[in-house]
Write a protein that binds this DNA or RNA. Structure first.
Lengths: 193, 193
DNA sequence: TGTTAAGCGGAGATATCCTCCGCATATACC
DNA sequence: GGTATATGCGGAGGATATCTCCGCTTAACA
């Protein structure tokens, strides 16, 4: 149980390069809507063997999660920036709209998320932590400013938006998602008991 | 192109029985969380051959849709009843809560819905029609009574609720979904522009 | 430059979906 | 009842996908 960290050899350059390639190829495929592309195909496009893919990502879910983890981080990092630029409620609104944009651009790859039957919970629980703390901060600020009711569960707002993305195929989708943002914010205000 | 309906032989009793069995077994499995149970296994539990399963339901999606189509209808049928019993906005609220209850009891099998990678849109578009017209009616009444803003896309409310269910695993989930119902309704009121 | 651990890659074991088609039987008609 | 036949049954097996295993290669370190 000794938690010693061995002075391990630096990771091989080709290993890192292959990992990057795989992530890029996978992201391109998912973004293009090829959600259930075979893993062999991803490996082929990335110019590596299937074994390499599986060493880096033990299963499909792990790959998917890794693919958009980076995007999730970018999205989360936007929260403090917006908070500094806008008053609390508007920062929240802006960030929620950004969230919609990400989904619209498939940068958050909602369909891929959906594809994880059963595993969704686990995956989202891990990856979603960063998003959760991001919106927690925004909501907390808005509550502190007295504009938003205190008994809001911030994550629910995200979940609601993500839900709209799930069953969204039609062209006017993005508009209605943005409208939902306004509804959610209006419904969260203290005035609207 | 003659649209003649042939006087077909009455369907065989064993055929109908097998179909029922399959649906019951599948519903039980899905409700129990075995979302990606192999179809062979469903056939086995139902005491029929795999071929029989595939004749009744050409693919996995068809089975899933058939399984909870009945529940969807029940849920949709509750809308006019509630509308008769409550004032418009309260009827809407009550129905949305009922929707949450169905999801909570897995009667609407949200995870199974999610499991349909790519096909979600199509499936929901077909099965969801009944739900859509149900909530359309409720919202229309609430708009007519002047209590709810007219530029609400009713389906979005459903989508938002369904979204909460997607990433819902925790114990307190149902409570927060119900709270979201209130937020959505509050945000849809005309006063809260 | 030699040693060695880390990484590579693809054959193939396993699992799942779905098709096909000969056999069985419930229905309809006599 | 008895017979004809459409309808349904069922599982072997083809197609495809996931994931494992292990001998070979190569980058990192001295």
């Amino acid at each position: 149980m000794t938690d010693e960290k061995k002075p391990r050899r630096r990771p091989r350059s080709d290993g890192q390069r292959n990992r990057e390639n795989l992530l890029n190829v996978a992201k391109a495929a998912f973004t293009a809507g090829e959600v259930d592309i075979p893993l062999d195909e991803i490996a082929r496009r990335a110019g590596v063997g299937i074994g390499t893919l599986y060493r880096h990502f033990p299963n499909r879910d792990a790959l998917i999660e890794a693919v958009y983890r980076a995007e999730l981080d970018r999205l989360a990092n936007a929260a403090p920036v917006l908070a500094a630029q806008h008053p609390p409620v508007e920062a929240l609104r802006a960030w929620m709209r950004l969230f919609v944009d990400y989904i619209a651009a498939k940068l958050v790859i909602a369909p891929a998320l959906n594809g994880l039957a059963g595993g969704t919970g686990t995956l989202y629980a891990q990856s979603g932590t960063v998003l959760q703390s991001a919106i927690d901060g925004l909501v907390a600020a808005a509550v502190a400013s007295g504009e938003i009711s205190a008994d809001i569960e911030p994550v629910d707002l995200l979940r609601a938006l993500a839900g709209v993305s799930n069953y969204a195929a039609g062209p006017g989708w993005e508009t209605s998602a943005k409208r939902l943002v306004d509804i959610l914010i209006a419904g969260s205000r203290v005035s609207a008991s």
